[in-house]
């Protein structure tokens, strides 16, 4: 983050504040800066900081929605508890581990597919051809559609009796009998992945396209003069150069996919076959009114994402230092 310019500013600052009037000026400026920050900090404290602390606190209590204020501290019981020869708590709940498995599968498969497809889209959009602007506009459409709407659209297209996908696959001779895409336990998670890939590939494609357009053209000139095959150029020149941008895009998508809720809730409601960690936590919190138990699940999800973010930041910093 620190460019030579900002470093110069930083070293210049103490010298300036040595003379008295300027020191006072910089003090009033610092006060003004915090005053300008204050409204945002207060709002973030109210919508993020405090609620998160409350969720963590609730996870150690027996709170339910109607008795939020009379919650009693029960230690780690919501997480793990041994009672009369049986384990209880979120960490002993097979449904929670199912949700963890589903979320990880969803994240891994959908982000990989989006990366590959997004790369293909971006390479196509980066080429010169007539009607490019129109294609680019078409690619933006899935991104503009609300997740709820896209989930509804797809659940109609995937309808087991009247859906167009079954109709198409049967008339092409690929299928003999219609498939229950969203109800069949071995297919429904794939259906969720399909909808998410459709909706999110454009985002990936746009980020990759932006990276492609910043590449210097001289390496390509050189490669063309030397008569190197385009596929080789892609793997030897393009891919290494856009890897940093790809890492950022993938990180964003992974963090987003780990908290997935809307698509799954609308496409398959609370089915255990597709339930993600967020769906599990919300079901406990709102539908079963088990605020303590649901908060424990939410806290685990938060910890998981926080650890992943910290690990990524740490690795990122380490890599940067390696470069310097």
């Amino acid at each position: 983050m620190s460019t030579p310019a900002t470093d110069k500013l930083r070293t210049a600052a103490p010298a300036a504040s040595a003379s008295h009037p300027k020191g006072r000026l910089s003090r009033t400026r610092v006060r003004a800066a915090w005053l300008f920050l204050l409204p945002m900090l207060v709002v973030l404290l109210l919508v993020a900081g405090w609620p998160l602390l409350r969720t963590i606190w609730f996870s150690f209590t027996d709170a339910s929605f109607s008795t939020l204020h009379e919650a009693h501290f029960i230690g780690l019981e919501n997480y793990l508890n041994y009672d009369e020869g049986e384990w209880y708590g979120v960490l002993a709940d097979p449904q929670w581990w199912g949700a963890v498995r589903n979320t990880l599968f969803f994240t891994l498969v959908s982000v990989s597919l989006e990366l590959v497809l997004g790369m293909v889209f971006a390479l196509v959009l980066n080429a010169q051809f007539p009607g490019r602007a129109l294609v680019r506009a078409a690619v933006l459409i899935p991104w503009a559609i609300p997740t709820i709407v896209s989930a509804k659209m797809w659940s109609w297209m995937l309808h087991d009796q009247f859906g167009i996908l079954n109709h198409l696959l049967i008339s092409l001779g690929i299928l003999d009998t219609p498939l229950a895409w969203t109800a069949n336990s071995s297919l429904s998670l794939w259906a969720v992945v399909m909808v998410d890939v459709w909706k999110t590939t454009p985002f990936m494609a746009l980020l990759i396209l932006a990276a492609l357009q910043m590449l210097p053209s001289d390496c390509y000139e050189a490669a063309r003069v030397d008569g190197i095959h385009p596929v080789r150029v892609f793997f030897r020149v393009t891919l290494p150069l856009i890897t940093p941008a790809l890492l950022v895009a993938v990180t964003f998508r992974v963090l987003d996919a780990l908290r997935v809720f809307d698509v799954i809730y609308v496409l398959t409601s609370n089915s255990a076959d597709t339930m993600s960690m967020s769906v599990f936590a919300r079901q406990q919190l709102v539908e079963f009114q088990e605020v303590g138990y649901g908060s424990a699940a939410s806290t685990l999800l938060f910890l998981f994402i926080a650890l992943l973010t910290l690990a990524w930041l740490y690795l990122g910093r380490k890599r940067l230092q390696g470069d310097l």
Partner: peptide
């Protein structure tokens, strides 16, 4: 503005964008 804590505030804001919504549901 150049002031102490600027970097921390930016990191904090970035951290909030990673929040899973469901983690603040009951508190919010």
């Amino acid at each position: 503005f150049d002031f102490k804590g600027r970097g921390s505030v930016l990191t904090l804001v970035l951290g909030v964008s990673m929040f899973p919504q469901v983690a603040v549901l009951s508190g919010l």
